[in-house]
Design a protein around this nucleic acid. Structure first.
Lengths: 222, 222
DNA sequence: CCGGCTTTCTCGGTATCCCAAATTGGGATA
DNA sequence: TATCCCAATTTGGGATACCGAGAAAGCCGG
């Protein structure tokens, strides 16, 4: 694989896993030493990440995108009709095998599982459902949404009740699709999205101070 | 402004206006001579355009993204719930001044206006409505959708009846928002989106041969 | 001790260079 | 005429060199 893609993957992972703090400044020359490779592939990776808005320009500098609390509301408003459409289409188009695969994914996530596992499955569930819609634009949009939520969700998966509630809601959505009840599926999915928004806002507001203390840029909110 | 942005803008415009044919191959060194500037800013512009999927890799080569007929259906399916949400939110959030500005934009497009004008206004209308939603994610999504439809729409604005019908539908959507009838607005907008899809599919299928003759790559469809 | 000035250093933007892989073109051969 | 093979060329990926702008650091006079 090309160096550029390697660097892109690593950098993206470092950002989404909070290895690089939101708001942190990166110089191309620091990245050059951090990863093996010259500025050429690093620049390409940065431009790419800029397109996903995981990285941003601050004047002439590159910074990791800050966590924006205000964004959470808009994101919820945006994804709700998309995921509603996704579950509706999934009811019409998904095969039993597709649904079984998703169920297996959910079941693989037991109480004792590490936080990374809950975090990953929580993302993958939504993307997998979107995939059932058969619509590549919906899939891409949901992937992008989950990437934007990724960093905030590390806080959500910190507490047992949040994890469990999200998991239960995922299960209910899946069941509605399996029973081919599109209207109910849409209702449950919308409720899940609003619940998630509230959970994330609460987590972030609670931990805001702690995050700032760790040097994370957390902006917006009311 | 940086060279990279200049090149990006020009190249994007050339692609969206069909100045560069869909499927056409570009070498970095040809672009280097076409625009003044070295490969470095050109490559940055290409990576950016790749993120918008206006440019694509074909093996090791860069090509202008082909026009994909199959994509039109998926796009319609994708944008319908988004624009439905947009008009619904617009009903709740738009000011009279906002609506007047959009009406003015529509009115500026008279029968005698050049095709470029119809094309531009057709795009801007949808983006403007999305903006009324106040949700930046919806705006970005609609901008992206309209960019993807841009090239196909050159055919749509070719014929008088198509132009007029789209214009009338835009007007009806605007009126529903102004009268604050969200459900009706959603219905009309959804109908407009389906009509547009059908018009575009018909235009493209009709002109498919002609487009191919011009060296345009047109793929997909049934 | 402070404020304004100059010097230095750093960084991103751009140009250029090098390389390996891939494509191409042509000639020999069947 | 079709096919294979090899050299020459082209191409994109990466590395490096250079530049100018802006920030930081030092310096000097008050």
């Amino acid at each position: 694989m090309s160096q550029m893609l390697q660097i892109y993957d690593q950098l993206r992972e470092m950002i989404l896993s909070l290895d690089l703090g939101p708001g942190e400044r990166m110089t191309e020359r620091w990245l050059e030493s951090r990863f093996a490779g010259s500025r050429t592939p690093i620049r390409a990776a940065l431009v790419r990440l800029e397109g996903e808005e995981l990285v941003r320009r601050d004047g002439r500098n590159w910074i990791v995108a800050p966590i924006d609390l205000g964004e959470l509301e808009a994101l919820s408003e945006y994804r709700e009709p998309l995921e509603a459409t996704a579950v509706r289409l999934a009811c019409a188009r998904a095969s039993e095998a597709d649904l079984a695969a998703i169920e297996e994914m959910l079941d693989a996530c037991q109480s004792g599982a590490p936080r990374e596992e809950w975090h990953r499955v929580g993302t993958d569930f939504h993307v997998a459902i979107a995939r059932l819609s058969g619509n590549p634009f919906i899939v891409k949009a949901i992937e992008s949404v989950m990437a934007r939520l990724s960093r905030a969700r590390w806080l959500e998966v910190w507490t047992e009740p949040s994890r469990e509630q999200a998991w239960a809601e995922h299960r209910r959505i899946l069941d509605c699709i399996r029973r081919n009840q599109p209207d109910e599926a849409v209702r449950v999915a919308a409720e899940h999205i609003r619940d998630t928004r509230d959970r994330l806002l609460r987590s972030l507001n609670d931990d805001r101070r702690g995050l700032r203390a760790r040097g994370f840029a957390v902006i917006g909110g009311r």
